[in-house]
Design a protein around this nucleic acid. Structure first.
Lengths: 117, 117
DNA sequence: CGTCGCTAGGTAGCACGCCGATCTAGATAG
DNA sequence: CTATCTAGATCGGCGTGCTACCTAGCGACG
C-alpha cells in the first residue's frame, strides 16, 4: 500500500527540495524524513536514494549533520538546514511555484490546431 | 541567451509530457519541437536528449512517425499522437495539476517548528 | 537463548537517461 | 568553395535512482 501516486521522474526532480522542506521543520534524521515524505503522499523514498542525497547536501553545505545516541534503538544522524540551505529552500521554493504555474498553463492552453499539410 | 530558467532536473521530469503537448497541436518534427519548447520558456532541448526521447515514444506507441521530404532543407520526420498518446497526455496532464498543487502546498505550509532537543 | 521484526544508517552494482561532441546531409548565401 | 542554417541521429561519459544487501541496537516472543 501507500502506492506511488505520481510518476517517479516527477518525484525525482523535486525530491531534494522536499527533503529540505522537511528538515526546515527542525533537525531530524534520515529515517524520519523518509517516513514524513511517505506520510505527505510522496512515495516511499528508499535508503539507497535518500542517504546519498543527504550526503550530497551535507557536502554542498546546505545541511549540517550531528550524531546522537538513540534512546531505545540505534543512533541517529540529525540534519539541520544551514543558512545556505535555508536560502536554497526559499529560492527554489519560489521558483517551483513559477515552474508549476508555467507548466500547468502550457498544458492547459487549447491546442491551436496546427494546419496539417 | 534564452537562459535556462528552471533547474534541469525539473525540466527533465516533465520533458516527455511537454513534448506530447507540442505534438498535440498537430503533426510536427523534432527540430520544430525543440524550437517550440525553447520558445515556450523551457530550456533548449538538445538533440541528444530529444531524438532518443521521440524514439522511445514511437517505440511505446504513443506517437507515430512519418518521413516527408523537406521543402527547402533536409527531410523531416513528422510525429503525431496516437490514440494512446492522446490518452497519456490527458491522464498525465490531469496528474500534473494534482502533483503541482500537492507540492506547492507542501512547500507553502508554515513550518510546525519541531521541538529541538 | 535464539530468532524475528522494527529502527537506523550505509554501500555496491545495475540500469537508465541527460548531455556534449560529433557526424551526415540538403539548401542557401557569400 | 566555404560557411551557416536546418534536420536527424549516435555515442561515450557521467550522474543518479533503484534494488539488494549488510551492520547494528533494541524489544518481544516462544
Amino acid at each position: 500500500m501507500t502506492e506511488n501516486p505520481y510518476p517517479s521522474e516527477w518525484l525525482r526532480g523535486v525530491l531534494g527540495l522536499a527533503v529540505l522542506r522537511v528538515i526546515a521543520d527542525g533537525p531530524t534524521y534520515g529515517y524520519a524524513i523518509a517516513l514524513a515524505l511517505a506520510d505527505q503522499g510522496f512515495g516511499e523514498i528508499k535508503g539507497g536514494t535518500l542517504y546519498p542525497l543527504l550526503g550530497r547536501f551535507e557536502e554542498s553545505g546546505d545541511v549540517s549533520a550531528e550524531w546522537r545516541e538513540g534512546d531505545g534503538g540505534p543512533g541517529r544522524k540529525y540534519y539541520r538546514l544551514t543558512e545556505s540551505g535555508r536560502r536554497l529552500l526559499h529560492d527554489r521554493g519560489r521558483m517551483w511555484h513559477g515552474f508549476a504555474r508555467h507548466m500547468s498553463g502550457f498544458l492547459t492552453t487549447m491546442p491551436t490546431e496546427r494546419i496539417e499539410r
